[in-house]
Nucleic acid binder design. Sequence first.
DNA 1: CCACGATTCTAAATCCTATTAGATTCCACC
DNA 2: GGTGGAATCTAATAGGATTTAGAATCGTGG
Lengths: 213, 213
Amino acid sequence: METNATDTERPDDAPPHATPKSAQTRQRILDAAAEVLSRKGYAGTRLVDVAAVAGVQAPAIYYYFGSRDELVEEVMWVGAHLVRLHVEEVLAEMDPLSTHMERLMVAVDAHLRFELQLSDYATASIRNAGHVPEQLRVRPAAEEALYSRLWRDLFVAAQQAGEVRADLDINVFRLLLLGAMNWVVEWWNPRTRSLDELVATAQAMVRHGAAAR
Amino acid sequence: METNATDTERPDDAPPHATPKSAQTRQRILDAAAEVLSRKGYAGTRLVDVAAVAGVQAPAIYYYFGSRDELVEEVMWVGAHLVRLHVEEVLAEMDPLSTHMERLMVAVDAHLRFELQLSDYATASIRNAGHVPEQLRVRPAAEEALYSRLWRDLFVAAQQAGEVRADLDINVFRLLLLGAMNWVVEWWNPRTRSLDELVATAQAMVRHGAAAR
DNA sequence: CCACGATTCTAAATCCTATTAGATTCCACC
DNA sequence: GGTGGAATCTAATAGGATTTAGAATCGTGG
């Protein structure tokens, strides 16, 4: 019994998957859950709806996930994970000579675009962070902590380099900024406002709001 | 049948109330609902819990409210309404000679303090705005629109007076700011951070982020 | 102190949705 | 083409929460 197999994070309790290509159904279900969750929220997400979006019958979900909560938890984790990966990746591609403020601007841009355009997972994760029962928050919370650290590092570096006012409370400022960006999912309408404009304004909020001088 | 009585907004479908003093039970129930709703969210709010907090049995709620959803809707509406009243009141007390930027600072202060200290209703309203079913959003949404207008007016006046940069998109900036402040309920912990510090940083975000010069 | 309406309770009905059971189909491989 | 396991379905179960029914209690005015 090779319980500690190498290709999976979840040891043994996990149902089958990973073997045949039809386990892409698992992905369809996960995607569907992300979409429904991002729209309806934890309260309004019914397995029947998820199944319908995934083109499957509700009980089929149990072939891949132990329970509704397990499915939700995974969506939340993936959401937090993807955002962090995306922002990290974009930052890694930057010119190493960029200023810290430039890095902040790029991070703001990446966060907003990913959240609004690329990922139902991110939206689901953001909107339901404070609404799912405690037990479901553990794994996702760990991911969010990593993401939080990423931003903290950006701000600390910028402040130490003198690019951010020394008297600014960067911890509170960072949390306010992330809140402003997260809340965007509650009001942004692609048909009403251009994403570019949104990004530019958010960047201005940081540049002028935090910059030294 | 005096259906169009003068002392109530809801015409006739409403159950008794308004007459005897014991209708303060209604208030207890509403308060309890606000508290539970602000902590557990729409999903996790069970009538049994609300009843327990109100010191009553669950079915008693139906003597005052037609349904669970009606109760929730009222909490949401009251939440939005109270915030607006509070901020309007504080602004009204200001020296008429105050600058527009000073008025914005006071509004930020009032919004945050009310949301975090004074009102479970505000918290409940904010946290669940995007999570309750569509039908429940109509009445609360009307209140929120009024509040939105209040802020828009503040920003428009400030910009026209030249106290806010002319090239700033004040609509987007306003929505970002309100988002930042609303999201605070998701992370603020009174034991970890002082409210004064939070308010000061939020004000700085506006003052430096939006101010001309 | 009695009556009557207002208020609240206990007990039961109803509904909704997650979850399980068991049957069935699909598909790769012999 | 048949066999065995993987994948999915239909139908039934179960549990929890709202909501109704009807009884009990409380409090006030006569």
